[in-house]
Nucleic acid binder design. Structure first.
Length: 150
DNA sequence: GCCAACGTTGGC
DNA sequence: GCCAACGTTGGC
């Protein structure tokens, strides 16, 4: 089983939104590396850290689970969507997504600041300088360590 | 709101 | 294939 981290801006979609909706198609990813992780790396049942970005206290706020195999992101075909991609076609879709389902909200936010200060997490993709990947793998050892921080 | 870092686009 | 210009991400 692989482990992952997925970023979301809480103003757009927060852990509380996922808790309320139970399950959500992770649409709008328009980065090839992130797409490839969803398409090629994720398997149903993989665990995901839910990360809040672009907010007062960025950090890990919950755990989700991959609920489907990858399938074409419907928003790429919708001219009214801000994620519309005219270069993509149904015959040859460019963007894929998975559904994620709610597992739990952490009792507290494990902040980016705290993660950065933790020597056990050296090398984590999230902490690399300039890292902007919104879907990224998490090493098993890092996963276990972070779960232990809650 | 600023801006560094990064990814993509498109002219050549 | 190079690379300048541009757009986006996301911490601060």
């Amino acid at each position: 089983m692989n482990h992952w981290l997925m970023k979301s801006e809480p103003d757009a979609f927060s852990i509380d939104d996922l808790k309320r909706k139970k399950r959500e198609p992770w649409d709008g990813v328009r980065n090839y590396q992130a797409r490839n992780f969803m398409r090629d790396g994720m398997r149903v049942g993989d665990k995901v850290f839910f990360y809040h970005s672009n907010c007062a206290v960025p950090g890990i706020v919950g755990i989700a689970e991959v609920a489907t195999d990858a399938y074409p992101d419907p928003s790429q075909f919708d001219p009214d969507s801000k994620y519309f991609d005219p270069a993509s076609s149904r015959a040859n879709p460019r963007w894929m997504l998975v559904d994620v389902k709610f597992v739990k909200k952490l009792k507290r936010t494990i902040s980016l600041k705290e993660l950065q200060a933790d020597p056990a997490l050296d090398g984590m993709v999230l902490l690399r300088k300039g890292s902007r990947l919104s879907v990224q793998p998490v090493e098993a050892a890092h996963w276990e360590h972070i779960v232990g921080l809650e």
